[in-house]
Design a protein around this nucleic acid. Structure first.
Length: 133
DNA sequence: CTGATGACGGCGC
DNA sequence: TGCGCCGCCATCA
């Protein structure tokens, strides 16, 4: 029998390699970001870009913001996420702005005029930006 | 497809 | 520090 030799798609052994470097699906990216945020220790903070990197999504700071904007989970420590300069990203005076300030202060973080201050001036940035890499 | 928008970031002054 | 400008990414009108 003349079998059809031209196999449709040979399952190349590099199939999983491809999948490995393929960009994460939106849902995957979302989960990774949430995980990264949940990994921020109590009383410490991290920048949006910082979180993105830790989630394996360098350059996606705005995606992190997007996720947070639609977050519903009250357990998520979203308040520990700040802009790179240490300032609260939410518009000053807004509900979220005050909420975030309140939550941070409740964890012993010093917040002044929407900006997080290091607990130990002079010393290495305590919580300015949470631990490297 | 083009332009606007936004819980961003880096740089320069 | 404060500001403005521009780059980036994902959505949406």
């Amino acid at each position: 029998m003349t079998a059809i030799l031209s196999w449709p798609m040979r399952s190349t052994p590099m199939t999983d390699e491809v999948a490995a470097r393929a960009p994460p699906s939106p849902e995957q990216a979302r989960q990774r970001i949430l995980k990264a945020i949940r990994a921020i220790p109590y009383g410490e903070v991290a920048g949006y870009g910082e979180v993105a990197v830790r989630a394996g999504l360098p350059g996606r700071a705005r995606l992190v913001a997007r996720i947070l904007a639609g977050n519903e989970d009250p357990e998520l420590p979203w308040h520990r996420v700040l802009r790179a300069d240490g300032r609260i990203a939410l518009p000053e005076g807004s509900r979220g702005f005050h909420e975030q300030s309140r939550r941070l202060r409740a964890e012993g973080v010093r917040v002044e005029r929407g900006r997080v201050k290091r607990n130990k001036p002079g010393g290495d940035l305590d919580a300015a930006l949470w631990g490297p890499a």
